[in-house]
Design a protein around this nucleic acid. Structure first.
Lengths: 240, 240
DNA sequence: GTGGAATAGTTGTCTATACCAGTTATATAT
DNA sequence: ATATATAACTGGTATAGACAACTATTCCAC
């Protein structure tokens, strides 16, 4: 499970290992995880390295420590993610609705000037352009257009683009998403919007543009969404 | 400066020391701080201990590291606050605009059912109801109505209500604001909105409702704002 | 039973050291 | 002067070991 010769740092390998154990349910909510010395012994690594992995998971909210007792799996990652970057799917699930989507188009195109600027790439660099209608409980909720640099996420196809992009990036490319910016504005539907969202021209709509960044501040996704204002309201919690 | 016999951990002492250097301006924004090895040498402590202190300050946003170059003082605690709870005034200032406001009314009224629910008080408990027009560079930007429980912030008057409520609460009542939730939706202007915001009926508007909480999760302010969509766009950064 | 000591487990703090991987200044060769 | 190695810095990762602080249990004396 741990490869000492991998260029991936050991502590990061251990993080992923423990995360996986949590997500697959092998380590359950509220349960104690093995002690630091035990991890060190089992994987033949130093306790300080184990601590580095566990520290990060504590900071990310996966675990909590209790001096003298042990380290425990936190309950509900969901609530923490809610305070920030939720995908449409997660967002709808958290509202008790059933999300689905219809793929309208999947293209690889050269980036225009504005898209290139937002994604910090050169003009005409290749990007995926993926258009979807997002549905909640079967009814149209939003029209979404995503732009993703091909260079960063190669091998995206019409088939696998339906899976969670975030999971793909974190697990297969072992990159992690650190930050996102959103811009939200109000507008009114034009004829195109009205048709796809099944509303009337002049009805209010919510435009949301999100840019998601990797650890190093590299943008990897630009999503422009048009929501039906009568069905969707953006909810958001800030801490500190 | 560092006391090895103190019950306070060394890394924490060092954190406070560095923080102080930053806050007193001895270490300036963007400047390099001494290297880890230098701290270790000067204070005769281990480099790992220095790293523990610096790690924490990095996580708290005081410092940023750059491999091969050094560790730098982050600029502006303000910007971090911007990622979250900004008042209209701060928001506009950060956009390079000149904010002002016109008080429309200042009342103490019994809370209606919904307001009471949001503020977690009883129906008919007294609340301040403060209506303002918010201007940016002299032009109407938003219509704002704030509801504040009298019990939590007694002594608010038409005069001092113009000052920063947040500062007042943090400094005079020594309470601290920990969290806020926002709900954002799109709508279209009715005749009232159109008149106060100097736009046309049917123009798009952005409705923002914010509830701010004290440390203990006690709501102390409910603000409902109506923004001109042609002039205002909600911008928001999420981390992690 | 109650209190206290001993014990074995946990995380927390700290040291000393080593090597790796970027960055920058400096010396050297051309 | 201009390249180009090289050395000397930086933070990043990892080791091994030590003691402190805290928790839980067990056992024993009272």
């Amino acid at each position: 499970m741990i490869n000492k010769n991998s260029p991936v740092p050991i502590y990061h390998q251990l993080e992923e290992y423990i995360k996986q154990q949590i997500e697959t349910g092998i380590l359950r909510e509220e349960a104690v995880i093995p002690s630091e010395r035990e991890f060190a012994e089992v994987f033949q690594i130093s306790r300080m390295t184990v601590r580095q992995a566990i520290n990060n998971l504590v900071l990310e909210g996966y675990l909590t420590r209790q001096k003298g007792k042990g380290t425990f799996v936190s309950k509900k990652k969901v609530e923490q993610e809610l305070q920030g970057m939720t995908s449409f799917t997660e967002d709808m699930l958290s509202r008790g609705m059933n999300p689905s989507s219809t793929l309208l188009s999947f293209q690889i195109i050269p980036a225009d000037k504005n898209t290139a600027l937002d994604l910090k790439i050169e003009d005409n660099d290749s990007v995926y352009k993926i258009k979807r209608i997002r549905l909640a409980d079967g009814a149209p909720m939003a029209l979404e257009t995503a732009y993703i640099p091909v260079e960063i996420v190669p091998g995206l196809t019409e088939e696998n683009s339906n899976l969670s992009l975030y999971q793909y990036i974190e697990q297969h490319l072992s990159l992690s998403i650190s930050e996102a910016t959103q811009e939200i504005e109000a507008s009114i539907a034009d004829s195109d919007d009205a048709e796809t969202l099944e509303i009337n021209i002049g009805d209010p709509i919510l435009l949301i543009q999100r840019i998601s960044y990797l650890q190093d501040g590299i943008p990897f996704e630009l999503v422009k969404s048009t929501f039906r204002a009568d069905r969707y309201r953006f909810v958001h919690t800030m801490k500190r």
